[in-house]
Design a binder for these strands. Structure first.
Length: 310
DNA sequence: GGTAGACCTGGACGC
DNA sequence: GCGTCCAGGTCTACC
């Protein structure tokens, strides 16, 4: 029997709703159990990998059960990673502020977007989502966890920085992203990505955006997406899905360039929460087609979430 | 500052 | 079952 941690959450936290809120929850090594409503996730800790099964035990309370005993230090590390992943740092007042700006989500309570236990994983997952259909993103993450991750964990920056580009391409099927992924891992491993500066509220959004765009493999879309993952929601991450959403859900007309301008204008009133307003609109559209997100299974989304199905 | 073409994978489609 | 086409965001070279 392993360690069990009780984790306090904001009162409005809902594990089912708040985990199943962004596509990364179905990407390896995350496993969402669609029946038991638990999140299983292997974490890198000081003495090696440990897998957590996270369940909601009541209002404001989660339980994380591990497959081995954790030291005191490891318990603190696990808490920190789970807090980041589940966005437990965004308290009720943050949700209320968002719902004040965009009341459409007040009833459902949607306010948080699932992310990864580390910024490195978020950045690599973003790169694997660029210029590919969703099934390839699913596969790249699955293969990286399988071939490079210790006991099924997502690989660390140190491990990826030592990996040959041919291995990433051949085994993990990342294609031309191979060199960019290794270069990003080296930057993280050498400590050249200053996470404290990126998350500091006094750092300007424009400066963060400019810095992110200077990283290998990160363009305007990826930088906008990583800003969301850093908790900065003042920008959109515009890709072909955004344009499709503008046409299909908002009825916008014109060339892609014109539609993008109209989208920027459409989301302008949501100010600091633009990304959330956009994302929950898009998410609702996906749920209308595929059913509630808590019923989505990784393998099913890999086949169901193709452009042809939208 | 704007744009064309290359990059790689996997799904869709035609035969 | 095989071959071909296409979608997807970033990067480089060029105007």
């Amino acid at each position: 029997m392993g360690s069990r941690l009780t984790i306090s959450t904001p009162n409005d936290y809902d594990l089912v709703r708040d985990v199943c809120s962004y596509g990364y929850f179905v990407l390896a090594p995350n496993h969402w159990d669609t029946k038991k409503h638990t999140l299983t996730r292997p974490l890198h800790l000081e003495e090696g990998p440990a897998t957590a099964v996270i369940t909601q035990t009541g209002k404001g309370k989660l339980r994380a059960s591990f497959d081995r005993i954790l030291s005191r230090e490891e318990q603190a590390q696990a808490r920190a990673q789970i807090t980041r992943m589940l966005r437990l740092d965004e308290d009720e007042s943050h949700s209320k502020q968002f719902h004040g700006v965009d009341p459409r989500w007040k009833k459902s309570g949607r306010a948080r977007l699932f992310r990864s236990p580390t910024l490195f994983e978020d950045v690599i997952k973003t790169v694997t989502s660029c210029n590919v259909a969703w099934p390839s993103t699913v596969n790249m993450n699955k293969q990286m966890a399988r071939h490079l991750g210790q006991k099924g964990c997502f690989p660390t920056a140190a491990r990826v920085s030592r990996t040959r580009v041919g291995t990433l391409r051949g085994r993990c099927r990342v294609g031309y992203r191979d060199q960019r992924i290794v270069d990003l891992a080296k930057l993280f491993h050498k400590g050249e990505i200053d996470e404290a500066w990126l998350t500091d509220r006094s750092t300007d959004d424009d400066d963060v955006f400019t810095f992110l765009k200077s990283l290998p493999g990160i363009g305007p879309y990826a930088a906008g997406n990583i800003m969301m993952l850093l908790g900065r929601y003042s920008r959109l991450a515009i890709d072909t899905e955004t344009v499709r959403h503008g046409k299909a859900a908002l009825g916008l007309k014109g060339t892609d360039r014109q539609i993008i301008k109209k989208l920027e204008k459409h989301y302008e009133p949501f100010g600091e929460f633009k990304f959330k307003s956009y994302w929950f609109e898009l998410w609702t559209f996906y749920e209308d087609y595929q059913g509630p997100s808590e019923t989505w299974d990784r393998e099913e989304t890999a086949t169901a979430f193709t452009a042809a199905n939208f």
